[in-house]
């Protein structure tokens, strides 16, 4: 069933609206799990030096992009034809913002995968410790933010911000470590840069999740507040 078809099955207008919007929510969750998979696969491809897997991550990003446009289209039609107001309107607007952040997260995952492809068969500069941690944290934060969205739970959304601080902390630690390695070992600069890019992409994913959390607060309460400033 497409997002559109769900709309015509219910009798009352309200039921039809709810049904259409829950179709949009389902599609956002699907997009979220595609991103999760992309992040995990990107990191796996880095750990296992699996360029075929990295290539797959890059290719599948197109599906994420397509789903973004499909969801935006459905939101647009819902606004134009059903004139949602108040909380309904905030939820649709939140949905439209969230898919943009999700789509960008897909770009970051794909960015990591491209780094893996560029590395070819050069050995890793150092064993990966904090990068997989960052990836795990990113996935947990993403899940948490989307759960807060589905549950319309501003408190759960607010709890995301401290986790992004953990993310920033890990990023800084990796950054400093890599800078130090580069200073000591100029031959390792190129390989250090690959890891730096990877960590940077993960850190950006954390920021995107924080945006989603802000959107959930706005949708639930009508307040626009910046989390994690």
């Amino acid at each position: 069933m497409t997002l559109e078809e769900g709309a015509s099955m219910e009798s009352s207008l309200r039921a039809r609206y709810d049904r259409t919007f829950s179709g949009i929510v389902d599609a956002i969750l699907k997009m979220g799990s595609m991103i999760e998979e992309a992040v995990q696969n990107a990191i796996n491809s880095l750990q296992n030096r699996d360029t075929a897997l990295a290539q797959e991550v890059v290719e599948r990003d197109a599906e994420v992009n397509a789903l973004r446009f499909e969801i935006e289209e459905a939101c647009l039609a819902l606004i134009a034809t059903q004139q949602p107001a108040a909380g309904d309107l905030r939820a649709v607007i939140a949905a439209m913002n969230i898919v943009v952040d999700l789509e960008r997260m897909g770009d970051h995952a794909s960015g990591i995968a491209k780094t893996v492809i560029r590395m070819g068969d050069q050995p890793l500069l150092k064993p990966l410790i904090d990068i997989p941690r960052m990836a795990k944290l990113a996935v947990e934060m993403l899940r948490g933010s989307l759960k807060a969205f589905v549950d319309v739970d501003p408190e759960a959304a607010q709890a995301i911000a401290p986790r992004d601080e953990e993310m920033d902390f890990l990023y800084r630690a990796i950054f400093e470590e890599l800078v130090e390695i580069m200073a000591r070992n100029p031959q390792g600069v190129e390989r250090a840069t690959y890891l730096l890019w990877t960590a940077h992409n993960l850190e950006r994913i954390g920021d995107r999740v924080t945006n989603i959390a802000e959107r959930v607060v706005f949708m639930s309460t009508g307040d626009v507040e910046e989390l994690n400033v």
């Binding site: 015509s8 009798s11 009352s12 207008l13 309200r14 039809r16 134009a80 034809t81 059903q82 004139q83």
Partner: peptide, 28 residues
């Protein structure tokens, strides 16, 4: 409007309206 959306299961409905939102909400 709710009635119209329910009736369309059984009928073919043609509605003239000056209310743009109504056209948007109820019609196919």
């Amino acid at each position: 409007e709710n009635l119209m959306t329910r009736l369309k299961d059984d009928y073919t409905i043609v509605v003239v309206t000056h209310n743009m939102q109504q056209a948007a909400r109820v019609s196919d």
